[in-house]
Design a protein around this nucleic acid. Sequence first.
DNA 1: TATGAATGAGACTTCATTCAT
DNA 2: GATGAATGAAGTCTCATTCAT
Lengths: 189, 189, 189, 189
Amino acid sequence: MSKNKQEDILEAAMQLFAERGYDGTTIPMIADKAKVGAGTIYRYFDNKESLVNSLFVKCVTQFSDILNSEFPGNSGDVREQFSHIFYRMFQFAKHNPYALLFIDSHCMGYYLNEESNKVYDDFLAFIIGAIEKGQERGAIRQLPSNALIAIVYGAFIMLFKMEQAGALENTGQLLEELEESCWNAVRII
Amino acid sequence: MSKNKQEDILEAAMQLFAERGYDGTTIPMIADKAKVGAGTIYRYFDNKESLVNSLFVKCVTQFSDILNSEFPGNSGDVREQFSHIFYRMFQFAKHNPYALLFIDSHCMGYYLNEESNKVYDDFLAFIIGAIEKGQERGAIRQLPSNALIAIVYGAFIMLFKMEQAGALENTGQLLEELEESCWNAVRII
Amino acid sequence: MSKNKQEDILEAAMQLFAERGYDGTTIPMIADKAKVGAGTIYRYFDNKESLVNSLFVKCVTQFSDILNSEFPGNSGDVREQFSHIFYRMFQFAKHNPYALLFIDSHCMGYYLNEESNKVYDDFLAFIIGAIEKGQERGAIRQLPSNALIAIVYGAFIMLFKMEQAGALENTGQLLEELEESCWNAVRII
Amino acid sequence: MSKNKQEDILEAAMQLFAERGYDGTTIPMIADKAKVGAGTIYRYFDNKESLVNSLFVKCVTQFSDILNSEFPGNSGDVREQFSHIFYRMFQFAKHNPYALLFIDSHCMGYYLNEESNKVYDDFLAFIIGAIEKGQERGAIRQLPSNALIAIVYGAFIMLFKMEQAGALENTGQLLEELEESCWNAVRII
DNA sequence: TATGAATGAGACTTCATTCAT
DNA sequence: GATGAATGAAGTCTCATTCAT
C-alpha cells in the first residue's frame, strides 16, 4: 500500500503509455496496474488527456533537470559539455526507461496541450543552446543546430530502444565508444 | 476516382496511422479519407489488425526495396555502400514521408503479427549485413552492428522528423554534410 | 419491426421521459423500449440532450398545430374561440397523453436549448394573443394575460393529470361542464 | 454556521430538487450547498431516496398545516372557506417557494414511498372534504370533487410558476381578482 | 460527530464489425 | 462488389455510498 496514490497512478500510466501508447491504454488498465479504483484516477486528474499532459510535463522536466544539473556551462570546454549531456542522457534512460520511451513516443501526440508543447520545446532549446555555443567556439560543425540535435538525440534514442529490445547490451566500455562515435558525428574533423 | 479501392484504403490508413497512431485512428476515419463505405474496408481486409499488418509489410518492403535496388554489393567499396544507403533512405523519406513515419511509429506495436515482425527484422538484417561486411574490411568501427545501425538510422529518422516538423529545411548541400556527419560516426578515424 | 427507427426512439423516449423525467431515464432504457441497440440512438441524435430537445420541439409543435388548426380567428366570437382552444387541448391530451405530460414536466428543464425555449414561448404567445383579443372585445376579465393563461392552462393540466392517475373519468358530459367552469374563471360576470 | 446540520441538508436538498429534479441533483451538490461533508448526509438519512421522502413528507405536512390552521370549519360559510384556502396557499407559496415547487414536481415521482404517497393523498383529501361540504350546501357546482380541486389547485400552481418565472407580478390587488376568478370557476352561477 | 478520499456499478458514448440492400 | 444502418462490447467518466481518520 503506497502512501501516494497520485504517484502510483502516474507510474502505472507511464509504463502503459510507453508500451501501448495513449489511445491503446485504457483507464481500467491504469487503475488495475496502480491498484486503485477507476474512479480514483478522476480525483487526481480531470480526465485522461489531463493525465497524459501532467505526466508528460513531469517526465520532460525530470529529463531536463538531469541534463541541466552540474552542467559545465561557461567554464567547461565543448568536448566536456558534449560528454556531460551524452552520459546524463544515458543515466536518465537507465534509471527511467519508461519515462524516456513515453517522452519519445508521445512528444508529437495530438492530445498534448500548449503547456506540454512548451515544456518540450524548452527542453530542446537547452540542448540547442549548448550546441550553438560549441559552434561559436569552432569545435562543432557548421550545421543547423536542429540537425546536430537530431543526429545525437536520434542516435541516442535508437540506441536506447535497441537496448530495451534486448538487441544490445550496454556496458561501460561500449558507452564510451558510442559517446565517441556521436562526438565524431558533430565535431569538426 | 481511383481505380483501385484497396490502394485508396491503404493510402488513407497510412496517413492516418502516421498522424494519430493505430489506436487513435478509427475505421470510419479511414473510410472517409479513402472515400469508400466503412463496410468496403472489410472486403479487402479481415479486420483492423489485418489492415495495419498488411500496410506495415507493404511499407517496409517498399523501403527495403529502395535500399536494395542497385546496391553496390561486392564490387563497391564501403564508403560507397554507406553513401548509397544513406541517400536512398532520404529518397524514400522524401517520396513516402507517411510511410516512413508509419513504420517508425508502429514498428514496436503490440498489434503486429509474426510476419510483420519478421519483415522488419529482415529489413534491419540487410543493413546489419552491409555494416558487418564493412567492418570485416576494416573501414567501420568495431562496435556491435546493432549499435551502428542505431546511430545512423536513429539520426536519420530524427532528421526526417525535424524536417517534417518544419524545423529543418533539407537542401542538397545540407544532405551531403549530414551524410558525412553520419559516416564520421561509424567509420574508423 | 417498424420502418422508422427514429420514430420508435422518439416514442420510447417520450413515454419514459414523461414517466421518469429526463435524468431518471437512461439511454439503455430508451433503447430497450424502442427495441433498438443503444448505439442506434446515436445515429439519429448527437446525444441525450439533443434527443430531449428534438422531442420537445416536436411535441410542442404538434400541440400548437392542434390548437391553431381551424382556429376561429377574426370571424368567431370570443366564447367560441375559448371553446375551440379548450376542446382542442383535451383532444390533444386524449390522443397524446405522454406528449402532454412530457411537455409539462420538461418545459423548465435546464437541458433545454434556445430553440426549445423559443418554440415553447411562441406556443404560449399564441394563446396570449387570443386572450388579449378577447379582452379588447370586452368579453374577458381585465387581468394580465399571463394570469389568465395560467388559470386555464393550469386547470387543464391538473385535470388531465387527475384523469391519468385514474382519479377522474372524463366523459363528454363532464368535459362540457369543465369547459364552462374554466370559462367562468376568465369571463366577465 | 447553522446549529442544525439536518436542517441545512434538507434546505439545500429542497432548493436543488426544486430546480433540477431528484435525478438531476447529486449528493455532492447537496453537500456543497449545505456546507457539510458528503458523508454527513448519511448520518441523517439512510440514502438519497430516504432523504427525498423525508423532505417530501415535511414539505407537504407544512403546506397542509398552513391550510388547516384557523380553517373556518363548520362555522364559516363556503365562500369564506374557499377564500381561506386560496389565500393560505399563496401565503405558503410566498414564504416557501422552493417547497411548493418541490412538492409539485416530485408528487408523482417513482421514488416516493408509501408514506409519502399517503401524506400527499391525505393533503388532497382535506381539500376534497372542504369542497364536498360546500357542494352539500349547494354553493359549489356539482362536479367530481377531484375535478374541482384540479381546477383550483392547477390554476394556483401555474400562477405561482408564472410569478416565479418573472412573467407575473403578484400584488394584493391582483390576488383578490385571481381569487374571484377561481371562485367563479367552481361556484354555482 | 464529521469528514472526504476511495470505490465500483452504471451512466453516456464510441467504434469495430456485420449484413440486408 | 459496395454500402452504410445497425449493433453491442467496451471505452470514458460520474456519483451514491462506505469507512478510516
